[in-house]
């Protein structure tokens, strides 16, 4: 198989696993973990296209992935802060029980 196609397939599988986790888990932290897995799969795609595509010396894909890692770190910090804040409010991290907009 084409070397790039292998990486793309692995990235697609990791993305699907992350999507399944984000859609099926009850715990808010595990939903965030699923989103992190999806972001990582996208990063793997970027790096793989950078490695096997034309003009790798321009560093475009690598820079995209590095900035994406930084943005994902910011997202994780704010997301987990929100989970802790809402846990303090409703005493649960179960998303199925968070069914009110009123505080």
């Amino acid at each position: 198989m084409n070397p790039l196609a292998r990486y793309l397939l692995v990235a697609a599988l990791v993305f699907a696993i992350g999507l399944a986790g984000a859609l099926t888990r009850r715990n808010a932290i595990l939903v965030l973990i699923g989103i992190e897995l999806m972001l990582n799969a996208a990063n793997l795609n970027l790096i793989a296209f950078w490695r096997y595509g034309a003009h790798p010396e321009a560093l475009t894909g690598m820079m995209f992935a590095v900035f994406s890692i930084a943005v994902a770190a910011a997202e994780a910090a704010v997301g987990l802060g929100l989970v802790i804040s809402i846990y303090r409010h409703v005493r649960t991290a179960d998303l199925d029980k968070m069914n009110r907009l009123k505080g």
Binding site: A16, L19, A20, L23, T24, R25, R26, L95, D96
Partner: peptide, 15 residues
């Protein structure tokens, strides 16, 4: 349960 009530739909979407 650790999976939400709509886990089957989520699994189908991911697949």
């Amino acid at each position: 349960a650790v999976f939400s009530r709509t886990w089957l739909a989520g699994l189908c979407i991911a697949a």
